[in-house]
Design a protein around this nucleic acid. Structure first.
Lengths: 195, 195
DNA sequence: ACAGCTCTAGAACGAGCGCTCTATTTAGTG
DNA sequence: CACTAAATAGAGCGCTCGTTCTAGAGCTGT
């Protein structure tokens, strides 16, 4: 990685802005015109890069957000040897990021998923893929720490669900505490599996 | 309670329909005209009962949904003496309800909260109130089971967060498993607090 | 009979939606 | 320099949004 990162391309700006807007206002609440304006692009550019229209832009943004959280997760899990401590650190990272954004920049996957529930759309698929990928990352760490395959899968699912829910709770109550509490309780839970 | 329940009034139908639509499509994705049509009312009736417009209808619907889940929670906690078993049963109840609705009828509070994040609106306040009320119900049960005040508060917050998150995960993956897993893991966590 | 309510009914308004379309500018290649 | 494809630019289309407004229907008390 170079010291001087290239300025983001128009396409990248569109994706980044869309991800942020979905975090804050949801999928339905975000218009293509607003995306174009905030990305300093024009309507023509947006439809040039995403001929599939609004849904295509959203899918790209959700995949971007999914990868972003996956990196945060992998980072925390690599820094700490103990998975319990790693998950607690991860929750703390989320809490700090949330506070710094004024409690607005949550998880674009959750937001978009809830608005497109019965739809069988690409958005739903992208959200389901993201959740599965995150669970897989956690499960791998647990397996490496001596968990059985069944325990790892069930605990990983619960870890992701709890982090998701605690993030929403933290946003609504505008406090780090729900995420901090979830981190501590998840750590306690993981430690009950020690040999 | 009589055997013959009165047919719901126009006002009640509006609130019930709105709650269901918010569950499925979110707040922004639900229009007043759709509410009127599905509630078999007219626009005039909606604005007659809710002069404050869309937001007022949504607040009433959210409060209704909040009370509904509070009753489910209190019911499960009353049925079981052991709080761990009670929370697990609660998760199972949610899983069954979700499957029976075709994975569409989740939590209107979460859905509405995420779409109105930075807004300082009555909707945000209603969602925050709902979460606090649910946590309080769980905390009371834990206190009655011998938890310290601090433990009860922190665990109750985590229980609600986990149930919220697991419900979303279950909806996206169209499976009862995330909620079942969350129930089992929460039960395991609660049992670590036994004297 | 009639006034005075609550409730129902839906047309109409301005604003904004997603998207299409035609131009025009920019960048890359021989 | 000439030619082409990529990218930018935004006016305009049909439609739906939330809301307002006027008009009528149903009921009660006098």
């Amino acid at each position: 990685m170079s010291l001087y990162t290239a300025p983001p391309s128009t396409r990248e700006r569109i994706v980044l802005v869309t991800a942020r807007l979905i975090q804050r206002q949801g999928y339905v609440g975000t218009s293509i015109k607003q995306i174009a304006k905030e990305a300093q692009a024009t309507l023509g550019s947006v439809y040039h890069f995403f001929p599939g229209g609004k849904e295509t832009v959203a899918v790209a943004a959700i995949k971007h957000g999914a990868k972003e959280f996956a990196l945060l997760l992998e980072d925390a899990l690599r820094r700490e040897d103990d998975p319990a401590a790693a998950i607690e650190a991860c929750a703390a990272d989320l809490a700090v990021g949330l506070r710094e954004s004024g409690w607005t920049d949550g998880c674009p996957v959750t937001a978009a998923a809830l608005e497109t529930l019965g739809t069988d759309s690409d958005i739903q698929r992208a959200c389901a893929d993201a959740l599965r990928a995150w669970e897989h990352i956690v499960a791998e760490k647990l397996l490496a720490s001596g968990f059985t395959a069944e325990d790892a899968a069930e605990v990983a699912t619960t870890v992701i669900s709890t982090l998701e829910g605690a993030e929403v709770t933290a946003q609504v109550s505008r406090s780090e505490e729900p995420l901090r509490a979830a981190g501590r309780q998840l750590a306690r839970l993981l430690r009950t599996y020690r040999a």
